[in-house]
Amino acid sequence: MRPCARRLLVAAGAVVLALAAAVPALALTGDEIIRRMERHERHDSMQSTGSMEITDRFGTRTKSFMSTALGDDRSLLEFTNPEEAGQKVLRLEDEIYLYFPDSEDVIHLQGAALRDSVLGSDFSYEDMTGSSSRLNDYEVVLEGTEEIDGHETYRLRLTAKRRDVVYPVQVAWVDSERFVTRRVELFSRRGRALKRMAVTEFREVGDKVIGTRLEMSDFMKKESMTVFTIDDIAIDEPVDESLFSLEELTF
């Protein structure tokens, strides 16, 4: 066989192999990709400590926290940095309570307030505490595949099923090999880009892969970025249910 013909045969073989690999991938539906992704992102329980570094043109401010979550709709977040030490955020189902230790006061948040920034960061209360399945809130369409930071990803478009969903449209890039989120862009109903989140570091915890460094940019805030880092994490370990109560919030 002439060398040219051999090269053609090898190339054709490679194309066939690539197509063979792509067929099952493309056979996945958007919902199935979300389900596989959420196997890494949703847990029976999670305990973590970490920090948020908020950077703007004047410098960086760091907020540290410890967090415990149980299921989709219960979480307790306590800030530990000196400026906000003792401030807590409790999520109980669709309600959020804020506790301010200086005034021993409890504020109840709901509705649009869930979109309010947490301590001036690029994260909202919904971003920080919400973890219900996207399949409950969004219609998912697989738009194709793209390479993000050297990794093959599925590009998914999520469109809110209801008007009360905080982010009406999301575009997510999900690693096609590990099924972890690599990037998410959040849009308003009119299609304006609101935020971009990139997950830049991962850690294996048991059989799950957890994003431990997230960069969030709020496009409405100029020259601003928040880096959310998880330092310690424990997943699916027993958690005392009494943590998620007003008694614990005000302790």
Binding site: D102, S103, E104, D105, F244, S245, L246, E247
Partner: peptide, 22 residues
């Protein structure tokens, strides 16, 4: 506007009834 700051010497007992009641 730091209004809720008054303190006093006290002893209090808090008995939780459920997640949101006490």
């Amino acid at each position: 506007g730091e209004y809720l700051t008054a303190t006093d010497w006290l002893v209090a007992a808090y008995v939780p009834v459920d997640l949101r009641s006490f």
